[in-house]
Design a protein around this nucleic acid. Structure first.
Lengths: 249, 249
DNA sequence: ATTCATCATAATGTCTGACAATTGACTTTA
DNA sequence: TAAAGTCAATTGTCAGACATTATGATGAAT
């Protein structure tokens, strides 16, 4: 049982790697070279094989580029790191990175029953009790987004959210640590503002909004959060790296 | 110099792997288990390390889920494969899959000079000659999308496109095989239809459109295509799997 | 019979070391 | 000067081993 140094000791090497590598890549100017793999592996305290697994994912997201015989380079486009859609993060986290001063306004809780449509989408009985959390996100005191989260009551209760809720259900669930979250399936749409939402966001009815409709799944593949996010164009930049698909069946 | 069987022999192992693994994953029912890594590696003719690099990327895209001590499983959500944004494919390819009868209309070529803005975005001299390809995509004889591609003249010329162009610059470049394409950086926006585009799409000025602004890069990290895609909501469903980010600096 | 602890088994996670393939710079040579 | 050859550095791949974790089987205790 050599315990390996591993100062933290509570994370799997790969997870720690993912974070440290991301920070390192972000800290290196575009176009610059990363240390050679053997050096980098030593420096990060993992084997080259494990390092390469992580590198491959970052390469897949277009953050780095590797050339055999030459080296690994940080690719230009900074924005990929800034707001890539591959990683799910809260509006707050995202906004902080763009150095926006964000606040939450018009918070509202509603206890609703699933009903036909929601029961279909969320795969629960139509009589299921749900908690609906709605709020406006303000940046520099101007409304920029309207967020609605719908969760089963047994996953999150209103009383639990009363304190320590800063606007992001996602961040709250991550902090709480249970259930363990894995990923979200997000559908991207453009929509016109309905009267209710227009009023909340202080825009005109019919104005253009970017909308994410997301299903957040736990590690056990259970749906824990069904959410609608409406964004006023111009405040956020959402980007995604799409690899050219060789898959032509 | 054991030449390894490797029937094809012209691709790097990893690239071949990516395709074969994708097909294999797609062919396995959701929830089912993949063969164990050592077996799978043997079956695909690569080492376990190489296989794991590929697996890691598919895991990152939410297609598979691995559990230590148990195995690797194909994750449910069919939509991931159906119209996930991670893979770049042409509107035609996408439309075919949804079984839409698609056609191209109002094709138009323009020879333009880059100018200030385009020169910035595309990283070319302001005097560079560019080819602009615009067209409307019709589904069931109704306009559903308006596409504009802008390419350097030396990459694609009008005369070359005169024959065999079916509406997708991407598909054409893939078929031609040069330059080799790697990925695109796509920004997702919502916008109101400008008069010109509204006329093309037979909608009202100011109507809501989903818009992709994409930069397509070659394997040498050169920009080969700068494109704008406008979609009328309701005909396509764009989805993306976002993994919960552990990265909290 | 039921419950609990223990063990064996199998799978992924990680490590080590090596060799192959590619690139770029340097050296040598015509 | 220009071409060819050499060499070192770097990523790509491989093989084998051990570590860690989850599952089911086994047997003992209740």
């Amino acid at each position: 049982m050599v315990s390996k140094d591993s100062s933290k000791g509570f994370e799997q090497p790969y997870q720690r790697l993912q974070g440290e590598l991301a920070r390192m890549i972000a800290s290196i100017p575009a176009g610059e070279r990363l240390p050679a793999e053997p050096d980098l592996a030593r420096q990060l305290g993992v084997s080259r094989a494990t390092l390469r697994e992580a590198m491959r994912t970052f390469e897949g997201q277009g953050m780095i580029r590797r050339r055999q015989g030459v080296g690994t380079f940080v690719v230009g486009q900074g924005p990929v790191l800034q707001s890539g859609l591959e990683v799910l993060e809260s509006i707050e986290t995202l906004a902080k990175r763009i150095k926006l001063n964000v606040q939450m306004g018009a918070l509202r809780f509603d206890h609703i029953q699933a009903g036909e449509n929601l029961a279909m989408e969320m795969d629960v009985p139509p009589t299921a009790d749900l908690l609906q959390v709605s709020r406006v996100i303000l940046a520099e005191d101007r409304p920029v987004a309207y967020l609605v989260d719908i969760l089963p009551e047994n996953i999150l209760s209103e009383s639990e959210l009363q304190e320590g809720f800063t606007g992001s259900v996602l961040d709250y669930l991550i902090r709480r640590g249970s259930p363990k979250l894995s990923n979200s399936l997000t559908e991207i749409r453009a929509t016109a503002a309905k009267p209710e939402i227009a009023r909340m966001l202080q825009i005109q009815r019919g104005d253009v909004l970017l909308m994410f409709q997301a299903k957040l799944f736990s590690a056990e593949a259970r749906l824990v959060d069904f959410s609608f996010s409406y964004f006023i164009p111009g405040y956020f930049r959402f980007q995604v790296v799409r690899r050219v698909g060789d898959i032509h069946s």
